[in-house]
């Protein structure tokens, strides 16, 4: 555990809490892609199956359970509790275009051809692209509420901090996880364009982020 990794996990936690609290307090999930949230729930579910097989640390176990619980709570709020506000007409990204290649890749490129390893790899690849329905939705509607952009900012920050964590671990413990690092870098690239808009628009006091 290093400071980048801890800060990355905290950013991830903050992002998910921002989204949950926003939906809960506004009683609305307008502008939120339910598809991205289902994909994230799938990411956590397939990655954290090792909760049943290995014990790494209390921190690790607690964070995994919290991420799982909060991602399912988010999906529940969007599709059940506040489904009347769900913006399905703009949440039209075809997730099969993500799932099919990601399933194929996880069978081809993994550390061991076992169910748990393939599912872990699937979760890593899927996380890299799971935000695409949300970014697609923002592009389609041409705007995003500032709270939604704060959520995306912390999610992107979490990815960037994980890269710093990997650089640190490479130099201090010669740790290098090729699958996680390559997908992590790809994932972070998706946020770059958004980061630019966030800094130039949202941080200058706009209530909404309107796309150029």
């Amino acid at each position: 555990m290093n400071v980048f990794r801890l800060a990355g996990d905290v950013s991830h936690l903050v992002a998910i809490i921002i989204l949950l609290v926003k939906i809960w307090r506004s009683k609305s999930c307008a502008g939120i892609s339910g598809k991205s949230q289902v994909l994230f729930a799938l990411v956590f579910t397939t990655r954290y199956l090792d909760l049943f097989t290995v014990f790494i640390s209390a921190y690790n176990t607690i964070m995994k359970v919290v991420f799982l619980a909060m991602s399912y709570a988010t999906v529940y709020l969007i599709y059940m509790r506040f489904r009347n506000m769900y913006d399905s007409e703009n949440d039209t990204f075809r997730v099969e275009f993500l799932l099919v290649p990601v399933i194929g890749l996880s069978f081809l490129e993994n550390y061991a051809f076992t169910p748990l390893e393939i599912l872990w790899t699937f979760s890593i690849f899927l996380e890299a692209v799971a935000i695409m329905p949300q970014l697609f939705m923002i592009t389609k509607t041409g705007e995003a509420e500032s709270i939604t952009t704060h959520y995306l900012f912390f999610l992107g920050l979490y990815r960037a901090l994980y890269i710093a964590n990997w650089v640190w671990r490479y130099h201090t413990e010669e740790f290098f996880d090729q699958i996680a690092v390559v997908s992590g870098v790809v994932q972070t690239i998706f946020y770059c364009d958004f980061f630019y808009l966030y800094v130039t628009r949202v941080l200058r006091g706009k209530a909404k982020m309107i796309l150029p």
Binding site: D9, H12, I56, S57, N60, M63, K64, Y162, D177
Partner: peptide
């Protein structure tokens, strides 16, 4: 200690 392929990470 850490597992070989980063499973200590979240």
């Amino acid at each position: 200690s850490d597992s070989p392929n980063g499973k200590d990470e979240l």
